[in-house]
């Protein structure tokens, strides 16, 4: 279990204040030139737009059933067909981005905050605090997130908040590991020694002195985690432990319709599956772009 990972290669911005604008602006401009990032961003923004305004251009009410037209194949009237109780699949796919795009980013945000704090503490104090916390985090990472989440959600009961908290806390150790290894390198630098000589408090040194200098690896890790959070939320919803009915959420729709695909009703699941695939790939492309921008 080595503590060094990808973040070790990420150069921290120069610690002197006069230069701080430079590298960040450079990262910003290299993001704008990155085809990977822009493609990913475009896909994500498309789904964000659907989440925000989908209701206004969805042809039907995504929750309105119409039993007579149940399981109708794609047609001019219903572009993506209808599901088993006659709901318009096209409208549901468009509005279905809403819950996952609320839950996954909030979970990622929680993971980032908790993971950054943990990483700063373990990296800064090292010693016994670090050993104990690192072992616990390692044990936590030894089992797949989906299974940790399953256990916690079953114990706590299903709700959006539970899903956010559980996924957020499951991802925190991974972010903590990245932050910790960045902090380990930073704390040896002169500006930290200077802060300590000025008798700044440990909290001040960690959050005011070190934190700004480890932002790049945190940003990269956060964008990567967002992809995994979407993966995890979709998977939990598919298994019935995530977003709950009657939400038109994609994973949930697949879970309630896939039992019938043996009967050839492919349209009830294919478009939801492609929607998840596009969102996950979009986020990962954007994350790849962010990673590239900080590393070049």
């Amino acid at each position: 279990m080595s503590a060094t990972d990808s973040s070790a290669g990420i150069p921290a911005p120069a610690p002197n204040d006069t230069n701080r604008r430079g590298p960040l602006a450079e990262v910003f401009f290299s993001l704008l030139r990155s085809g990977t990032f822009l493609t990913g961003l475009a896909i994500v923004m498309f789904w964000v737009a659907c989440a925000l305004f989908g209701e206004h251009f969805a042809p039907y009410d995504p929750l309105a059933d119409d039993i007579i037209n149940a399981l109708a194949p794609p047609s001019a009237e219903h572009w993506f067909g209808t599901d088993q109780i006659g709901r318009d699949v096209f409208s549901r796919v468009i509005v279905g981005s809403r819950d996952i795009l609320t839950v996954a980013p909030l979970a990622t945000l929680l993971a980032t905050i908790a993971g950054t704090a943990l990483g700063l503490f373990t990296g800064y104090f090292r010693g016994i605090v670090d050993d104990v916390i690192s072992r616990i985090l390692e044990a936590f990472m030894a089992i797949p997130v989906v299974i940790v989440a399953l256990l916690a959600i079953v114990a706590l009961g299903t709700s959006k908040t539970t899903v956010i908290v559980v996924i957020g806390l499951s991802f925190a150790p991974i972010i903590a590991r990245t932050v910790r290894s960045a902090v380990l390198a930073e704390r040896e630098l002169d500006y930290v020694a200077a802060a300590q000589l000025r008798h700044e408090s440990a909290l001040h040194t960690m959050f005011v002195e070190i934190l700004p200098n480890v932002i790049p690896p945190i940003l990269v890790e956060t964008t990567v985690r967002l992809g995994y959070a979407i993966f995890a939320v979709a998977t939990l919803s598919f298994m019935g432990f995530g977003i709950q009915p009657p939400s038109p959420d994609w994973g949930l729709s697949i879970s309630s319709n896939y039992g019938m695909i043996g009967g050839g009703f492919w349209w009830t699941v294919l478009f939801d599956a492609l929607a998840i695939a596009s969102l996950v790939i979009g986020v990962n492309l954007a994350a790849d772009g962010v990673h590239g921008a900080f590393n070049d």
Binding site: G227, A234, T235, I261, G262, G264
Partner: peptide, 23 residues
């Protein structure tokens, strides 16, 4: 390889079922 790695298993599973099992 990277694209299929990031997709949830049930998504690739559904698409594969549709291709090889249903169609």
């Amino acid at each position: 390889g990277l694209s299929v790695t990031v997709l949830p298993e049930f998504v690739t599973g559904i698409i594969l079922i549709l291709i090889f099992g249903v169609w």
